[in-house]
């Protein structure tokens, strides 16, 4: 099972530039069914064995694709997302960093009530261990198992996955939801999917400063989750008013501090790790996994 994707997922690469091609190759090596690429001017050609098309619509007609990953640069990224939505893909993961917030706010509104689930933007994508790699994660550090991992960060996700794998604890799905202020899939969405997934027994969530997504997640855990959740919040030592790399990682107007998020999660029964080096151990102890 797992969430969002599996070995039957048929993936399109939107944006067959250098990065798109590089990661298409890695995904194919991992066993992912990469069925096509979409890139203006490259329709009708084949790159590394991947047939390319001018539009997502045509690619879906010809390949039966049901998911895409977007590497399109920021000025055209929101358009690429809406094209994936228009083609009624089940899933699109947008890797692109630096999309204007207004473009995303409009695209997100336009997606309401539509079939497609968006992951990201500004995210590392989705890995279902030994089944499917969508995006840019180093999938070799994952191993199949019962823990769902959801994170606003990229490399910190790898850190958490690596800690779990070293403890011998595998993952059902690893998912980076992105560091921007407006994102397609938030913590609550991901937690609901993991709660409903019979193969997921416990969840690790990795938040960071800025916004209130972690507080909303805490409320959701309290009200709707039966599975154990462990968490880490990055930025406990971040100064106020400074953007910490991610567009969304800023303590602004007295809101978004790590301490508030940690308190809300603890109050909801989530095991919160103070140290980023103890994420795996915290989950193992809390969920009784080893």
């Amino acid at each position: 099972m797992a969430i969002l994707a599996n070995k039957d997922t048929k993936l399109l690469i939107q944006g067959m530039g250098r990065m798109g091609q590089f990661h298409a190759k890695l995904s194919i090596e991992y066993g992912t069914q990469v069925v096509g690429g979409v890139h203006p001017g490259k329709g009708g050609t084949t790159i590394d064995g991947i047939p390319c098309f001018e539009t997502v619509e045509e690619a879906v007609e010809k390949t039966g694709a049901n998911a895409s990953v977007i590497f399109v640069p920021p000025p055209g990224a929101a358009d690429a997302i809406l094209e994936a939505v228009d083609a009624e893909l089940d899933l699109t993961a947008c890797i692109t960093e630096g999309i204007p917030a207004i473009d995303m706010a409009k695209a997100k509104r336009a997606m309401r009530g539509k079939k497609t689930r968006l992951v990201g933007p500004n995210c590392p994508g989705v890995v279902v261990p030994e089944q499917c790699r969508i995006g840019i994660m180093p999938a070799q550090i994952t191993r199949p198992g019962p823990v769902g991992v959801v994170s606003r960060s990229g490399t910190l996700t790898y850190e958490a996955v690596d800690q779990l794998s070293r403890l011998g604890i595998g993952q059902s799905t690893c998912l980076g939801i992105g560091g921007d202020p407006v994102i397609g899939t938030n913590f609550v969405d991901a937690l609901a999917l993991f709660e409903a997934d019979p193969e997921t027994e416990a969840i690790v969530m990795i938040g960071e400063i800025g916004g209130s997504a972690e507080e909303e997640a805490a409320q959701f855990v309290k009200d709707h989750m039966s599975k154990p959740v462990a968490a880490f919040i990055a930025g406990q030592n971040a100064p106020k008013g400074k953007r910490m790399g991610h567009a969304g990682a800023i303590i602004a107007g007295g809101k978004g501090a790590a301490s508030d998020k940690m308190a809300a999660l603890e109050a909801a029964g989530v095991a919160v790790s103070l140290s980023p080096a103890k994420i795996g151990e915290t989950l193992a102890a809390h969920a009784g996994l080893k």
Partner: peptide, 29 residues
């Protein structure tokens, strides 16, 4: 590069914003 100056003594170079924030937390821990 994304850089924010702080007032401590351990200089940090990290890849990724989340891991970079977590590294500050690790040093403090």
């Amino acid at each position: 590069l994304a850089y924010v100056g702080l007032d401590g003594s351990v200089g940090c170079m990290v890849n990724g914003a989340g891991l970079a924030m977590a590294t500050l937390d690790m040093i403090t821990v």
